[in-house]
């Protein structure tokens, strides 16, 4: 009888051991798969960054082995050459200026509209709301060409200061300007939609309490709703930032010279001009690294924004 107990017990222990072993193997396999996938997702960017510090001869030499991913040489020559040969600083300034202005103005303009739609009672509210929801389906590509037609004939005030005199004038086209890359993208139907959904869920008692205290609608919006809206502000800002920063089609259509050209177009143009891969990769690294660093710092917010864009759709 004792024998059976012992054998039972050892059998049980063996079973536990087997289950544990199976679990360990499964965990090990999971990590192996995840690491291989991580390599697949990382290798182009790692290769780009590492190679941007190598002279061309070394890049091609290292391509034959794993050294392609190892920083065998550290030289800033490619970077110096990019700054010497292109207007990189200008493109960087243009991109930052265009994107931050668009996103900042968009946060205010779209949240105000969403507030009016979600919180105020007025005739035509439902019509405007359903029009905006219907507009969500229009992809930018479907209106790009007629939009080009529109902005080509829009006026813009011109203020010139020469010889101490201020001269006012009018420009007759928006082509090749900053505003053509900013103004059309400030109002955004999807941003309004995201704000609208958020505002609907904020309890109305807050408004009413403020109303009793004598606050007007605008004060309620600015002092009560906005401070509560940090999550949706971050979502809208991040989604708009990603779209605007990576925009390529519109700058192709509306910019001619280098004056207002953004980074994406500067990269494509440089790629078309030079056969020097080291310099191309240095250019590409300088575009990618800042965004990648911002992403790594705020990755939780980035991922939450994308996740919510799907749930709401």
């Amino acid at each position: 009888m004792t024998m059976t107990t012992v054998s039972n017990r050892s059998g049980f222990a063996a079973k536990i051991g087997r289950v544990r072993a199976a679990k360990a193997i499964k965990l090990g396999l999971t990590y192996a798969v995840m690491i291989i996938l991580a390599f697949i997702f990382m290798f182009p960017v790692v290769f780009m960054i590492v190679s941007s510090f190598k002279p061309n001869a070394v890049i091609f030499e290292d391509l034959r082995s794993i050294r392609a991913f190892v920083p065998t040489v550290f030289s800033l020559d490619n970077y110096h050459a990019v700054f010497r040969r292109t207007n990189f600083g200008r493109f960087m300034f243009n991109s930052i200026f265009i994107v931050t202005t668009t996103v900042a103005l968009g946060l205010v303009v779209n949240s105000m509209a969403a507030y009016a739609l979600a919180r105020l009672r007025w005739k035509g509210r439902m019509l405007v709301l359903s029009t905006i929801i219907a507009l969500l389906i229009i992809p930018f590509e479907a209106i790009a060409i007629p939009l080009l037609f529109v902005v080509n004939s829009l006026p813009w005030p011109l203020v010139e200061i020469a010889n101490g005199m201020v001269r006012l004038g009018l420009e007759h086209s928006w082509l090749d300007t900053y505003q053509v890359q900013i103004v059309p993208f400030v109002a955004d139907a999807f941003s309004i939609f995201l704000f609208y959904q958020f505002f609907l869920e904020v309890p109305r008692e807050l408004d009413e309490a403020a109303l009793v205290d004598g606050a007007g609608p605008f004060r309620i919006y600015w002092n009560i709703l906005m401070p509560l809206s940090r999550p949706v502000l971050a979502t809208v800002a991040i989604l708009q930032f990603l779209v605007r920063w990576n925009d390529y089609l519109w700058p192709v259509l509306v910019t001619q010279g280098e004056k207002v050209r953004p980074l994406t177009l500067g990269m494509a143009a440089f790629f078309g001009q030079t056969p020097d891969w080291g310099q191309i990769l240095a250019f590409a690294t300088m575009i990618t690294l800042p965004v990648l660093i911002v992403f790594l710092l705020f990755q939780r917010w980035f991922i939450r924004s994308v996740a919510s864009s799907g749930l709401k759709g």
């Binding site: 009672r121 005739k123 007629p146 109002a187």
Partner: peptide, 25 residues
């Protein structure tokens, strides 16, 4: 008053969507 405020607050976005999205469409 509420209606006027609503239109004022919505105006920039509604105008933008009209000129740069609905009109081109």
């Amino acid at each position: 008053n509420e209606a006027i405020t609503a239109w004022l607050m919505g105006a920039p976005a509604f105008l933008g969507l009209f000129v740069f999205l609905l009109l081109p469409f």
